[in-house]
Simulated scan of single mutants.
Amino acid sequence: MPKISVEIPQELLDDLDEHVGDDGKFVNRSDAVRASVRKTLDILDEIDDRHDRLEDGAGRQS
Rank of each mutant, 00 (worst) to 15 (best):
H19M: 09
R34M: 10
D22P: 14
F26G: 02
V27G: 07
D31H: 13
E7M: 11
V20L: 01
A35K: 11
D17G: 01
V33A: 12
V27K: 15
V20K: 02
L16Y: 03
Q10G: 08
D22A: 12
A32T: 04
K25Y: 07
D31S: 11
R34H: 14
E7G: 11
A35Q: 13
G24M: 01
L16A: 05
V20D: 03
D22C: 03
K25A: 11
L13D: 05
E18I: 00
D17P: 00
F26D: 00
L12D: 10
A35Y: 15
D22S: 14
L12I: 10
I8E: 04
S30D: 08
D31I: 04
G21C: 01
L13G: 03
L13R: 11
V20N: 00
V20Q: 01
F26M: 00
F26V: 01
P9G: 12
F26N: 04
D22Q: 13
L16T: 00
G21D: 04
L13N: 07
V20M: 00
E11H: 09
D15I: 06
L16M: 08
D22E: 15
G21L: 01
L13W: 06
R29V: 02
G24R: 01
G24Y: 01
D23V: 05
D17C: 02
Q10M: 08
F26T: 03
F26E: 00
Q10N: 10
V20I: 06
A35P: 07
S36P: 09
G21E: 02
R29K: 12
D15W: 03
S30P: 03
I8P: 03
G24I: 04
L13C: 02
D15H: 06
S36K: 15
V33S: 06
S30G: 12
V27M: 09
Q10C: 05
D15A: 10
G24T: 03
K25C: 05
E18R: 14
D15Q: 10
K25E: 15
K25F: 06
D31L: 08
D23M: 09
E11P: 02
S36T: 14
I8T: 06
F26K: 01
A32S: 07
E11D: 11
